[in-house]
């Protein structure tokens, strides 16, 4: 079982590199000590003793290499440091913010897959040109709209004009509908675009002609022959889709004033709360890596050629 082991090794490498990149960006490009000082002193001057104490508390008194190694070691053990603002551990802060975000992300993913795949399958199946062209136009329209604006327009229409759904907050399942739809829009469009492309490619392949020459019906050709092949490239964007959803919550949670991971990210950036921002970036990388590992495991089930091929 060398193949899974290699993939796992690569996943660990990506995570390590993601840590290093985010460390370089956040701890080298900016001056976290200055941020800390500004926050602690509230504008008043700081005595050298206070400064030293502050540095020691957050580990900034060490040389950079030592800081990097110590922080990396702690991160491996699950300790991502403490927030500059709240003083809480970063890991716990993210864990607390996760449940509401998971709710809209899951709802958004379901909507995105259902509508994205639905649009793609109908658009490539129908023999009515106008219907196909309308459906194929939808994804490119959806990716052109600013997500924050779509959210606000939905609120204006469904909450303020019609009064059907709550505008803000996270109470009850009704409050989930508008954020989930907003989040699903660009993701669903992405899924639809990828699937339309791979379905069109598959339908033009000679093996589809072979199937039709056998007398196989159109639905069976579409689902049994074309989709079986088209699903393979569509699967590769799944990691990207997951990251996309996570990133989308940053905007959506702000628009709908919901608590969650997106909100704490926005606030952490505004406060230049470096450890918390790094925690969120690392969390996104973990999600990406885990999703891709799962995809790698599913791959051989869908594509018999993969098990034979030597991994690149």
């Amino acid at each position: 079982m060398i193949y899974p082991a290699r993939r796992l090794g690569f996943a660990v490498l990506v995570l390590w590199a993601a840590y290093t990149v985010s460390f370089a960006v956040l701890f080298l490009l900016s001056d976290p000590v200055a941020t800390l000082v500004a926050r602690a002193s509230d504008g008043a001057s700081v005595t050298p003793a206070d400064l030293a104490a502050l540095k020691a508390r957050y580990g900034f008194d060490q040389p950079l290499v030592v800081q990097y190694l110590e922080r990396l070691g702690a991160a491996v053990r699950g300790d991502l440091g403490t927030s500059f603002v709240s003083g809480q551990p970063v890991g716990a802060t993210i864990a607390d913010a996760l449940p509401p975000t998971l709710q809209i992300a899951t709802a958004g993913l379901v909507l995105a897959v259902v509508f994205g795949a639905g649009v793609a399958l109908v658009a490539t199946y129908t023999r009515h040109r106008w219907l196909a062209q309308t459906l194929m136009g939808l994804p490119s329209l959806a990716v052109s709209l600013p997500v924050f604006w779509v959210g606000l327009m939905l609120v204006q229409l469904f909450s303020f004009q019609l009064g059907w759904l709550p505008a803000v907050g996270a109470r009850g399942p009704e409050a989930l509908i508008l954020p989930a739809v907003t989040l699903a829009l660009p993701t669903g469009a992405l899924i639809a675009q990828v699937l339309v492309k791979s379905m069109s490619t598959a339908l033009a392949e000679p093996y589809v002609t072979t199937a039709r020459a056998k007398g196989v019906g159109p639905v069976a050709v579409h689902l049994r022959h074309a989709l079986g092949n088209a699903a393979i490239p569509a699967l590769t964007v799944l990691g990207y889709v997951a990251g996309n959803l996570l990133a989308g919550t940053v905007v959506v949670e702000t628009v709908f004033t919901r608590p969650g991971l997106g909100r704490i990210t926005v606030e952490a950036v505004a406060d230049q709360d470096v450890p918390l921002v790094q925690g969120v970036v690392l969390f996104a990388a973990v999600v990406f890596v885990v999703v891709n590992l799962v995809v790698d495991l599913i791959y051989p089930l869908l594509d018999p050629r993969v098990t034979q091929a030597v991994p690149a």
Partner: peptide, 19 residues
């Protein structure tokens, strides 16, 4: 590695660093 981080989050991290 850069592709493993959603672009918006990467941009946010950079803004947190750059101001």
């Amino acid at each position: 590695v850069l592709l493993a981080i959603p672009p918006i989050l990467l941009a946010l991290a950079l803004i947190a660093a750059l101001g």
